[in-house]
Computed example of a mutant assay.
Amino acid sequence: MQQIAQLDLSPTWAFGVRWSPSGKTLAYAGHSSMIYFVDDVEGSPAVQNLALRDLPLRDVDSFCF
């Protein structure tokens, strides 16, 4: 196993993590009911997030890319 990147992009615990089918976007669920989408992980990461109502959000399996 090899570390690709270390991301310090949000002030929350990360629970579920999933790569998009293309392998270009990483999604992870935060304890703060946010889901984060990270593009260009190996270069200059760009992050978008989506706030949800229910706490805690523990996985990203129910989200599609």
Rank of each mutant, 00 (worst) to 15 (best):
Y28H: 12
S62I: 05
D61H: 09
I4T: 10
V41I: 13
N49D: 14
D8Q: 08
L7M: 04
V17Y: 00
G23C: 06
L26W: 07
S33G: 04
I4Y: 04
S62C: 10
V17I: 14
S44F: 01
Y36G: 07
A14K: 00
E42C: 12
V47N: 06
Q6P: 00
C64Y: 11
V47A: 10
G43Q: 09
T25I: 13
E42A: 15
V17K: 02
D61R: 09
R18D: 03
K24Y: 05
A27D: 01
L9K: 11
A27H: 03
F63A: 01
S20L: 05
L57A: 04
D59Y: 03
Q3Y: 04
D8Y: 04
L55E: 11
H31R: 14
Q48V: 10
L57P: 02
S10G: 06
G16R: 02
S10W: 08
Q48W: 07
T12P: 01
I4G: 01
I35K: 06
F63N: 00
Q3D: 08
D54I: 04
N49E: 13
D61E: 05
L52F: 08
R53W: 00
M34F: 15
M1Q: 09
F63L: 11
S33P: 06
T25M: 12
L50Q: 05
S10M: 01
I4D: 05
E42G: 14
L52A: 01
A46L: 11
G16P: 08
R53Q: 14
A5L: 00
P45N: 06
S22V: 02
V47P: 11
S62Q: 10
L55R: 13
S44K: 11
A27V: 13
M1K: 09
D40T: 05
F15D: 10
V41Y: 02
L57S: 06
R18V: 00
Q48E: 14
M34N: 15
C64L: 14
N49L: 11
S20T: 14
S33E: 09
A14F: 02
A14D: 01
S22T: 15
E42F: 00
P45V: 02
S33W: 01
R58F: 07
D61N: 12
R53L: 12
S20F: 05
R58N: 07
Q2D: 09
W13Y: 12
D40M: 03
A5Y: 00
R58H: 04
L50K: 03
Y28F: 15
M34R: 15
Y28G: 08
D40W: 03
L7S: 04
T12Q: 02
C64E: 13
P11G: 08
F37K: 09
A51V: 11
D8L: 01
R58S: 10
M34D: 12
S44G: 03
D54F: 07
L9R: 10
R18P: 00
L50M: 10
V47C: 11
D54Q: 13
Y28N: 07
P11S: 13
G16N: 07
W13V: 11
P45F: 01
S44P: 00
Y36M: 09
I35E: 08
D8S: 10
L9F: 04
A14E: 06
